[in-house]
């Protein structure tokens, strides 16, 4: 069977068909398509902080983009621009910590990279324009900031991206201190754009949105790592 890739999801009031502002759990379909194209089977993980039980069914984890992370989780006072959802932070941290303990492959996207950072003991900038003096990481509503990233030679992300280093960003927070993670990519202004944990099988966070282009370099690498894990663990249908 295909590796099962869990994607953490939003909870928002959503409007579709005959329904108006109905509390719903969702992710942009780009994530699902990116995982499917890479040969994985996507399932969505609505927030739930009771336990990390669901990990037993997963071969890999995508921490999707979303709202800010609660600054209390990295010991900072809340800036006026921070908007967070306690339910999502709690649910994702339970999953992420258990996933790291189990050495499950993890890809963090945007907020997901920030969550990886917080789980690694790092800290975030709560509003980048205050720090950088420009808005090029979130130019406007629905507009991606386009950057040329610089990657550390020999890092996982450098190997995956090759010569095409164009990235699409949409965020107003950023990594200040990466904690126990290694910063392996930066924007022109020096802002961390990629973090990795070289001690683990596959832990990669990117500040940009690879799902937007269904980037098979990144999603393919995640699914490959997930598939390798299935083989190493001898996972079969009967084990599930």
């Amino acid at each position: 069977m295909r590796p099962i890739i869990g994607i953490t999801s939003y909870v928002v009031p959503a409007t579709w068909g005959v329904w108006r502002d109905l509390p719903s759990t969702l992710v942009p379909h780009d994530y699902v398509e990116a995982v499917t194209l890479a040969g994985g089977r996507a399932v969505l993980l609505p927030p739930d902080d009771r336990d990390a039980d669901v990990l037993r069914a997963l071969d890999g984890l995508v921490l999707a983009g979303g709202p800010d992370v609660d600054p209390a989780l990295y010991g900072a006072a809340c800036a006026p621009e921070s908007e967070f959802v306690i339910e999502r932070d709690a649910g994702e941290l339970v999953l992420l910590r258990a996933a790291l303990d189990a050495d499950l492959p993890v890809l963090g996207v945007c907020r997901g990279m920030q969550l990886l950072t917080v789980a690694a003991g790092g800290t975030l900038h709560q509003h980048l324009p205050d720090v950088l003096g420009h808005e090029r990481h979130r130019p406007g509503p629905g507009v991606y900031g386009e950057h040329e990233a610089v990657f550390t030679a020999g890092s996982r992300i450098a190997g995956l991206m090759g010569t095409d280093r164009a990235i699409h960003c949409f965020h107003h927070q950023g990594v200040a201190d990466a904690g126990s993670l290694t910063v392996t990519g930066r924007a022109e202004d020096g802002l961390p754009e990629a973090v990795e944990d070289p001690a683990r099988r596959f832990v990669l966070g990117v500040q940009w949105h690879p799902e937007y282009r269904r980037d098979q370099r990144l999603f393919g690498a995640l699914v490959d790592a997930a598939r390798t894990g299935m083989k190493e663990n001898g996972t079969t249908c009967a084990d599930r």
Partner: peptide, 16 residues
């Protein structure tokens, strides 16, 4: 196709 916040996009979704 779903609208939420300022977004209008194709989503995988279900009521909570």
């Amino acid at each position: 196709e779903v609208q939420y916040g300022r977004n209008d996009l194709m989503a995988a979704m279900l009521p909570m």
